[in-house]
Simulated scan of single mutants.
Amino acid sequence: MASSSGPSLNEKLQCSICLKVFTDPVTTPCGHNFCRTCLMKCWPNSPICFCPLCKEKFSRRPDLKINTTLGKLVQHFKKLNQESEVFCDFCDGRKQKAVKTCLTCPSSYCETHLEPHHRVPRLKKHTLINPVENLEDYICQKHERPLELFCRDDQMCVCLSCTEGEHRTHNTVPIEEESREKKMIQDRMKKIQEIKHSVKQRKTLASNDCFLTSSRTVHISNWMIIGLGVLLVAALIYTSVSECEKH
């Protein structure tokens, strides 16, 4: 859970309606996630609802429930990226504002004192996050190690030592991977819906083309009949005039 992953993960955890990090995220039957409030505002008092992202229609209003897994991830990363007045733990005299907090050390650093973490190979492996005051929220209270893994069985953030103990047989993955897989699933569902929508549009266009072709054929046939009628009347008039001239 390196610091460089923070902003990108925040973008992936954004609601596509309000473009902010999810609040009470719910999942539609088509697999897309939205803030509960945002989604309810998109649905008027009508029995037919649709997904704001892929436009799939639902014959009845879905029974929406909070996506607890996504909700916990959002809560964790909101804490990781919160802004606060955190100062460097190593400045002498007037302390400078911290730019990063190291969960491995654990300490907060200003730009100057953070420099070794960018240069020393051992320190480059440490977990850096945006400055935080309450380090205990990001450190496993049992093992005093960074919470950088997600246990899918218990739906909670754990540290590496946890996976060697009570979570040893559980399905645990890096927090970034959990978030990335959810994003991939959403992207796949979106692509499938786009393909379905495209096929439906093609069928509609094909049906309209057949109708227009049929209409044009009838229209041309009518004009041909009218044209033949005009020629026939002209011929009769010409014949009548010719007969009169003979007499």
Rank of each mutant, 00 (worst) to 15 (best):
T68V: 15
K124R: 14
Q193F: 13
R180E: 08
P131Q: 09
Q75P: 03
K142R: 12
T23W: 09
K78P: 00
F211Y: 11
L212I: 04
K41E: 15
C210G: 12
C151F: 07
D153T: 09
K124C: 08
K41T: 14
F90M: 04
E166G: 06
N208R: 08
E177T: 14
C105G: 05
D137N: 15
L128K: 03
L19Q: 10
C91E: 14
K12W: 13
L123T: 08
P106R: 02
L228A: 13
K190C: 07
D153Q: 04
S179L: 12
S179A: 13
C88S: 10
E115N: 14
C88A: 05
K196R: 15
V99S: 00
V233L: 07
F34L: 00
F50M: 11
G6A: 06
T169I: 01
H113I: 07
S198Y: 15
L228Q: 05
I226A: 03
T101L: 05
E83N: 07
E144G: 07
Q155W: 04
C162S: 06
K55F: 03
I175C: 00
D209Q: 10
K190T: 11
D137W: 15
M224E: 01
Q96F: 00
S221K: 02
E115V: 08
K97P: 01
C244I: 09
T127I: 09
I220A: 00
Q155G: 02
K182S: 11
